[in-house]
Design a protein around this nucleic acid. Structure first.
Lengths: 341, 341
DNA sequence: GCAAGTTATGACAGCGCTGTCAATATGGTT
DNA sequence: AACCATATTGACAGCGCTGTCATAACTTGC
């Protein structure tokens, strides 16, 4: 069946039909619609009118296959339950959209095998670039990244041996910063409460940094409580309750794996009638709005997730324009002294 | 330049190269890699080995163009700042991934023009289906949806004249339910605090429903405060502070546009020394974890966003398999009595 | 041992678009 | 008037893959 037959039942119009309607060749129509380099003004108009009349929507699959670069960017994140990655995605999307690019999304669920599989899958769409918040150092994944032949940005951390580019900050340094701050405030007996750390290796890096920071002054954690499951306010609340039931004397300060967890801790203190920070000091990580809106604003470390996403997209786009942006971009974290520690 | 030249500098291997390496024709290689209908066992093995050796990654642009349906689904959401839409996206992605599909994402920022533009853009990738949380009744957008010739699911609401399918619940009914509940608890003087409602028309529908529910018993809102900007905990806190400064006598109960806002209200009460619900009752909407973890659990209405996303994806997939799933799917909301109202 | 069926493979064309290069038209020069 | 630079257009091939139909190889039944 002739695909250009005038009455092929309601298939989407093709460029060739637009060209025919405008009385020009296909390639001229193509040029006209792509913003007329070397196309006469009135030809351009004719083609645009024809396209509009036919309700033409270009087929970018064909365009990309024939011509050049896709305007899709593959994005792999470990989770969307945590607002942190939604923020990154938001920043990414907003920068990409400016240039008419779109993210194709995959969620790894902190699972290395799934991450690798997603990567392969998304690569098959021949995206123009790749952004991921790595969930592992998986060798197969690294190999795929190295061989990707496209700009690749690893976000959230600044791993010096990233396959290509990296945007974020050192979680280890963030953990250390919090240790230094709490020590400066005079706390000595400190505990840590975290969510499932086997999977979230950035949270683990913060814990390690925190330990390092303490060790520099000869201190060690008096208690480390790791709970199963993803981080959440209820989990943090439960965590502090359990920790306080078991640990005597009570720690002076508790560092949580993130703000969600820490806010849960604050709620437990409110319920248990513990005064912050006199009875116990609490600190989180991320600088979420909720922590700052608490009656006792949360002491935490603010990270700029949206900016990380934005910059990641920008790096991809710059690379595609032929520039050579820096391999490692630091997006600084900032210690936010609150009223809880 | 011959694209199959053995030494074309590091282009990705093509199917034809795999076929050559395996000593079979292109089409046989194609069939073998797609799960061997009518391919001999050992041919299949040969091809798979060749593909593996060459590190072959199929080009789905070409595959989709030549053959059939894309495995991409276009997704348009109004925002990612609100965890609600991240939840929907999470549910969507998880169901899509099961069948090897991936979302291509666009964020409309509650802007009808942007939504329309995104729609056109995403359609140019010839996705297999389309999921959107509409931000407007925009005529041009509706026309595009009607003409999309692919499964379309509108999520979050159950608009009876959806272009194709819809999954969600009636926000109006949810608002009414909360009015009935609060009336049942004995409250009469009620106020509403909302975020920028010009854009978030689902929040507006809840407000309308709330008003309806009150009106059924001859009540009216004693105060309606609409704040600029997206919903957030700090904004809700500010809102309640402002409302209480201006409104005398104090309302008995306040309905917030959502949980984030309501939690902010709870924080204000904690700070201002107002007892919940004796001095003032507060209610939210969404049933977020944080509300339930508060020392005084928030009275709210739980919606199942992740399930909405999941079901939306499932509807698309079923339609692609030739089934005829229902046009409207209700995902019920549930009133969660807490300690704040 | 041969027709009829089944299984396995391949040749061919084409999906809708764009890069390349050639062809034509236009206008200004000397 | 012959010539050249520039502006505008088109023919052609091909991106990498899959659907269709034809062909070849192999069974099976009588």
């Amino acid at each position: 069946m002739d695909p250009n037959a005038p009455d092929t039942p309601s298939r989407r119009p093709t460029l060739s039909q637009v060209a025919k309607a405008a009385g020009v060749s296909e390639i001229t129509a193509s040029r006209a619609l792509r913003g007329g380099s070397a196309v006469a003004k009135d030809t351009q108009l004719k083609v645009e009118r024809a396209a509009h009349a036919l309700n033409y929507v270009p087929n970018r699959l064909a365009g990309t296959l024939a011509g050049g670069a896709s305007r899709q960017v593959a994005v792999i994140l470990p989770s969307l339950s945590n607002i942190v990655f939604a923020d990154v995605l938001k920043g990414l999307e907003s920068r990409l959209e400016d240039d008419g690019y779109h993210p194709i999304l995959g969620i790894s669920h902190y699972d290395a095998a799934r991450e690798e599989h997603l990567l392969r899958d998304l690569l098959s769409w021949r995206p123009a670039g790749l952004v991921l918040a790595p969930t592992s150092g998986n060798a197969a994944t690294r190999a795929l990244l190295q061989a990707a032949e496209m700009p690749v940005v690893e976000v959230m951390d600044t791993d010096p041996d990233a396959a290509d580019m990296a945007v974020g900050f050192s979680h280890r340094a963030a953990g250390r910063a919090m240790a230094h701050y709490l020590i400066g405030r005079g706390y000595r007996r400190m505990a840590y409460i975290g969510h499932d750390i086997a999977t979230d290796f950035r949270a683990l890096a913060r814990l390690d940094g925190f330990r390092d920071g303490l060790a520099e002054l000869g201190l060690t954690l008096c208690e480390t409580l790791i709970l199963d499951g993803p981080s959440s306010v209820p989990l943090g609340r439960e965590g502090l309750a359990r920790l306080l039931a078991h640990t005597h004397p009570r720690p002076e300060a508790v560092f949580f794996s993130n703000d969600d967890m820490a806010v849960g801790g604050v709620f437990h203190c409110q319920t248990a009638g513990l005064a912050l920070p006199q009875d116990i000091a609490l600190a989180g990580f991320n600088g979420l709005g909720i922590g700052q809106a608490l009656p006792t604003p949360l002491t935490t470390i603010a990270s700029n997730r949206e900016r990380i996403g934005f910059v990641a997209a920008d790096l991809i786009l710059r690379r595609l324009k032929g520039e050579s942006p820096p391999r490692i971009t630091q997006i600084d974290f900032r210690l936010v002294p609150g009223a809880t520690a």
